[in-house]
């Protein structure tokens, strides 16, 4: 058996997050180099401020300023920063209780090494040079040897409050389709469509997915099907998808290849889209180096009879 198939997949999207009033106030404050917390009904000050009291579940909206200085409540030395983390060089993750706050904020501490960090040490905010209204407006914390920082004494309200953030997120995966699909994909490379038969119900699955989904057992016996097949049903796609290089309109069809017990999905070409019909007989059209048939085209045979394929609809 040939080598395991695998390929990289990047799952990446810039999520657009609306903030609501409390988070908007906090992130707008950071943009203006002011740290805001929120006061609960029983007088605790939560920093970072949240919309709902973690203890009582009450909505909290009473925004108050706290100092940009504070005390480390716990820490962890990160000698090998990972993508997206606040500092490129080694740093300490810290929870910091800012002066005036009752809860702690998670961020990075820029320190020369683990020996320079301890719980209880005093730190202050190092502001990012460019601030947009995001948690990264705090570049990191840095060691600080002084009294509690001064409050600005402002109202906590600013012009042009931040309403949302864009949070890009990228995760990299390696996709491997597994035993059955690997065999299917490898056969396609030789321009053959090879399904698998269920040892229990004897149905032929194309493409095979490793398990007969009705019997819950592995399909293993390989069965070549097609190349001809019958269009069982279809739709005409009129909207162009951003990530697809297919001209519209085109026909997306369910095709029961001869010898298969369920239809696979493919595009129909070589015929005007408005002449495609249920029962049309088709065959695959391969392109150089393609991993799968580019599309299916009419064979010119008479249409399949509805009674012959209605069970495959």
């Amino acid at each position: 058996m040939s080598a395991v198939l695998k390929a990289p997949v990047t799952v990446e999207f810039p999520f657009t997050r609306s903030l609501g009033p409390v988070q908007s106030a906090f992130l707008t404050g950071l943009r203006e180099r002011v740290v805001l917390g929120v006061r609960t009904g029983d007088g605790r000050t939560l920093v970072p401020p949240v919309e709902y009291d973690p203890v009582t579940a009450e909505e909290i909206r009473d925004v108050v300023e706290v100092a940009p200085t504070g005390t480390v409540t716990t820490w962890a030395w990160n000698h090998a920063p990972r993508r997206g983390q606040p500092l490129a060089g080694p740093f300490a993750w810290v929870l910091v209780r800012l002066d005036g706050a009752d809860t702690a904020l998670l961020h990075a501490l820029d320190a020369p090494g683990p020996d320079a960090v301890h719980t209880g040490m005093r730190v202050r905010v190092r502001w990012a040079e460019e601030r947009t209204g995001a948690i990264t407006d705090i570049a990191c914390f840095e060691p600080y040897d002084g009294e509690a920082g001064q409050l600005t004494g402002g109202t906590g309200e600013f012009e042009n409050p931040v309403g949302g953030i864009v949070a890009p997120a990228r995760l990299d995966y390696t996709y491997s389709p597994g035993r059955a699909q690997t065999a299917y994909i490898n056969a396609l490379a030789d321009r053959r469509t090879v399904g698998e038969r269920c040892p229990s119900c004897r149905k032929v699955y194309v493409p095979p997915r490793g398990a007969c989904p009705t019997c819950g057992v592995a399909t293993e016996e390989r069965v070549e099907v097609g190349p001809g097949g019958t269009v069982t049903t279809f739709c005409i796609v009129n909207i162009k998808a951003k990530n697809l290089d297919i001209e519209v309109p085109y026909v997306y069809a369910h095709i029961a290849l001869d010898g298969a017990d369920l239809a696979l999905h493919g595009r129909i070409g070589g015929i005007p889209y408005d002449q495609v019909r249920m029962g049309l007989r088709v065959e695959p059209v391969w392109t150089e180096g393609g991993r799968y048939p580019d599309h299916y085209r009419p064979t010119g045979e008479p249409d399949g009879d509805y009674d012959m394929y209605k069970e495959l609809l």
Binding site: L5, Y175, P177, A241, N243, L244, G266, R291
Partner: peptide
Amino acid sequence: SLPIPFQQPLLA
């Protein structure tokens, strides 16, 4: 419509 390698993208 997250991409799945080795599968023909046909629809969104």
